[in-house]
Design a protein around this nucleic acid. Structure first.
Lengths: 238, 238
DNA sequence: GAGCGATATATTCTATAGATTCCTGATGGC
DNA sequence: GCCATCAGGAATCTATAGAATATATCGCTC
């Protein structure tokens, strides 16, 4: 697809992957020289990758001081989900207006797929996430507000990467299935208000669920096994 | 204030100023070498400035091909104002909750200031804009959703720069004064719903006004004298 | 002779290495 | 105990070399 085969792109992807995998944990300093050695490039592509990842929200940088992996704390999660609650209705409403019968069929099919995954692999985050993404991306296909899409997707990677490391509650998965169904029904009925309302509820529930799982992990210190930090020793320094 | 006195920051500011002033018009190619010569630095700070301005929305860049000043067309304006309509209510509602009597006094004073400017200098965009900014920034003072603020301010500079070159309708200025008053009243009454509604109307009116002025300028070819491109000859190439 | 495709050239972005500037923390003087 | 100065380290900048892309020219086919 996008064969952005420049060094800085490769470094961007590698760095993102390592952050997502937890090899570079939240708060870790991202020293240019260190990363340059790690990825076998010079300082410039690393700098550029850091810029890009700053744009994606993975990294926060201070002038003349260096960059670090962003801390995903409660405030941040709350802020992002609040933003999503504000923006998603735009997409849902417009999709209500423009959806063709074929679009509706595909949306229904995607909702069914998600329900299947939820039934058969209810604890597999990646599978659930992929199915969920398929469902929601249908609504973005003909969306004209590219700036709004950009905002919505900006922190999606980071939020998702963080969510992937948290436990999954079966009850919440069932709730998501129900909400998808509800949304499809509202859209089929061309009831934009109802669809937007469901979308907001959907996002709010997801946000509250994530916050509660984060609290849970903080309290119990538990951590889901999969996607664990692997080997921290890969890095020269701590 | 922010004494970001690195070369790339200086270039960022200079480049932004030149784009805002119209010396580098929308659509103009921003060649690294050319800009490096223009601002008497090497390619790297220019690259970095372009990254930053891409983040601010002034510039769009393609890999291995170059960057250009963003075109501000109708779609873009519509998208940005739609985003604002979605996000601004977040701020207004929360301000309603936390506003102290002192905050309300200052908001009232700012609204009065804007009204004064509107009466005495109704065609001075900069004065109106400054007063308007003062008014709205009061509501952002204690705002906790920094990501939402960032989104709101992202394209503000570019939109403002474009708006500054368009004509100002006295009737629209009067409408803005009235809307400010209305908003203050709703906030004083702690009626968050009403305040949010007024805010949305306010933004929608501003967006429609801007679009209609853009249409007007396109049709008549007229252009406001002040802030005109100055001298394009400053640039090596056309 | 006109249109199309391939090669060659020119332009521009991209990457490297070394020099420079800036920030941070530590040491010594007041 | 507090402030100024200095050393170490890291980010930033310059200059130059290396890729990638777009453009123009030439030759071929129809």
């Amino acid at each position: 697809m996008s064969k952005n085969s420049s060094l800085s792109h490769r470094v961007t992807n590698d760095l993102r992957r390592d952050i997502v995998a937890g090899i570079l944990p939240p708060g870790a300093w991202l020293k240019t020289e260190e990363l340059a050695a790690r990825y076998a490039v010079s300082a410039n592509p690393v700098r550029e990758a850091l810029w890009r990842l700053q744009g994606e929200g993975f990294v926060v940088a201070n002038p003349n001081q260096g960059a670090r992996v962003r801390m995903v704390d409660d405030d941040f999660v709350r802020n992002i989900f609040e933003l999503r609650e504000a923006i998603e209705p735009i997409f849902v409403r417009r999709f209500c207006q423009r959806a063709t019968p074929e679009d509706l069929d595909r949306l229904r099919a995607a909702a069914a797929d998600f329900a299947t995954v939820a039934r058969e692999q209810p604890t597999d985050f990646d599978a659930l996430d992929a199915a969920n993404r398929d469902f929601h991306s249908i609504m973005l296909e003909g969306e004209i507000n590219v700036q709004a899409i950009e905002v919505m997707q900006r922190y999606a990677g980071l939020i998702n990467a963080t969510r992937a490391k948290l436990p999954i509650m079966p009850s919440r998965v069932r709730q998501r299935v129900a909400q998808h169904t509800e949304m499809v029904e509202a859209i089929v009925a061309a009831d934009a208000d109802a669809a937007a309302r469901v979308a907001v509820d959907h996002i709010r529930a997801a946000g509250e669920d994530m916050l509660s799982q984060m609290r849970q992990v903080r309290l119990t210190g538990s951590r889901v096994a999969r996607n664990q930090p692997a080997r921290k020793d890969d890095l020269p320094a701590g």
